[in-house]
Design a protein around this nucleic acid. Sequence first.
DNA 1: TGTTAGCACTCCTAAGAACTGAGTGCTAAA
DNA 2: TTTAGCACTCAGTTCTTAGGAGTGCTAACA
Lengths: 347, 347
Amino acid sequence: MLTERQKLILLAVIDDYITSAVPVGSRTISKKKSIGYSAATIRNEMADLEEMGFLEQPHTSAGRIPSQKGYRFYVDHLLTPQPWTENDIFQYESQSSIEFDDLEEIFRQTTSVISELTNYMTITLAPKMVEHRLKHLQVIPLTERYAVSIVVTNTGYVDQRRIVVPKNVTVGNIEQFVNILNHRLQGLRMSKLKTAVEKKLIEELKRYVDHIESMLDLFHQIIDQIGKEEERVYLSGTTRILDQPEFQDVEKVKSLLDLLEETEAISQLVESDSTGVQVRIGKENHIQSINHCSIISASYMIDGEPVGSIGVLGPTRMDYSKVIGLIDFLSKDLTSRLRKWAEGSFT
Amino acid sequence: MLTERQKLILLAVIDDYITSAVPVGSRTISKKKSIGYSAATIRNEMADLEEMGFLEQPHTSAGRIPSQKGYRFYVDHLLTPQPWTENDIFQYESQSSIEFDDLEEIFRQTTSVISELTNYMTITLAPKMVEHRLKHLQVIPLTERYAVSIVVTNTGYVDQRRIVVPKNVTVGNIEQFVNILNHRLQGLRMSKLKTAVEKKLIEELKRYVDHIESMLDLFHQIIDQIGKEEERVYLSGTTRILDQPEFQDVEKVKSLLDLLEETEAISQLVESDSTGVQVRIGKENHIQSINHCSIISASYMIDGEPVGSIGVLGPTRMDYSKVIGLIDFLSKDLTSRLRKWAEGSFT
DNA sequence: TGTTAGCACTCCTAAGAACTGAGTGCTAAA
DNA sequence: TTTAGCACTCAGTTCTTAGGAGTGCTAACA
């Protein structure tokens, strides 16, 4: 295990490296006020820390930089989440005080505020529709052949799509059918709707609804696409990351941007299985092109369940203490704003 | 004016530079089969072309590169649009043959196909809603206080938003009101709806509708946001442009990406006032960060009117003849696909 | 008179050499 | 156990040099 002094030195090295991005030498550390030892002592300790794998040396005559293991130890044991500065709070409130009538806008703004406050890239995953519960279903006929279906969920999402009206079916038929569905399906998870109809509702429907086959076809038109819908991803601050010295190489920029064009890959990055703030450092991400990046993410809730997440992507040398504090606060804030939003919609 | 030989040489220089990205010397040109002159002759002509401003020399002992004026002349007088290769056609058809039920998908796919075929960045502006005509209006009550408004346009766009139901109003009131609006406003441009109601319809409404003030408030909730809606922008192939040697400098990449984060700026880039394919070379774009880029764009139509545009952004040294041919074809193709789509929706 | 060959000149680029300085490891003294 | 001192290492910078692509100019040629 590490001695207190070793921890102190490791902390100092990482803190310094995070701001300077340059390998830090023993003299730099010994000059700090919090450290009462000479450069030579520091050197000995740093040599030990390197041997244990917490520090690395780019080349013999350079200073030390933290290794992945070093960062991990720092995040787990040394770091204290940084409280908000007045400026942060001001900036946040000035942007989020607007009254939103639009869920999209809430996510967009949250994402962009975070990237502004951190100067890293921010990724937000909006809730997947399949995880929501059905609030209201409606079909509006446009012409003889076409109609628009409207699906509203408990989270206030509205899904609308064009559907084809089967040949032998009247407006009255549809209304009747949709009425029954509304009564019976309300409150169910979107992902369960299909089986609910096929298993439990089918008998009742056969009794009360004409042209049942056509109607089921209609229903599938409405529901099938929702499951396939890809996760909604909000990105902000892509360019900010280019200010970081580790992205001076165009190749790295390219491989990162390539990654960002794939929505699916992004989701995986930010998705978190645990509760609370999660930190993935360097290769812990298992994706080549962000081997030198870290991701700090957390989930937000709707109805007490995690439904989406926000994450910050920066170099491994990122300001963990600031970002962790921020993500922790904002994921909770997002949860409560979503609750208010939902209450505003449906009470 | 330029002699035939000068045109020949200018063409050869530009063609060569477009593929090589390296200043081209007199010897390179004289070796080409189509040119029957010695390097010395070419040198003389090139000196003349430089004097006239069609070519530039990075430094005394380097070859020549085309100037902006050179490219302009090339585009206007020398270039022949390149027909599609079999491979292009195959790739295009394999991606576009899918049956779309979703306008968004049509734009997204078109954008991505173009960026794949050209290897440059592609920008598509979807039609602005204000320019569409009203097809159908509907209000669905959700609760006592809230409702969802659905606006369908002639182009098949569906706009949906949450609105607040004024206190003293019943469902019946709303239905009556919306019915009248539907009858009277159908076919009008979205941008004209407000004045139409305030100028022409107000008397009739006062006669048949209760709580007219509340109703107008409702109407404004539905309509006001549509006008403000920013233009929908589809981007694809952002990273492809990083393969171009002119983007090896991270600063250039950054300033370009910064530009791309502003939707408004992008719209201006691609928006075209004229019909047919439009080419803007280098500083003709009036935007600092793309001084070394060219944009080739064209509009597509709905109901015979240009409503949006597609554009390709590449270095000034881009393959004009290929891209022009492609954009010309695809803008027309998009027009016809949109027509089919609209017919599918409303006949 | 237009075209071409020849030659001296320019200047970018790459490769090497020399220098600098930050930082280390090790040893010996406090 | 800590610290001061010193020799050593090595990345980065600057300077120099050689090479080569390309030019402009002149004179000869058809």
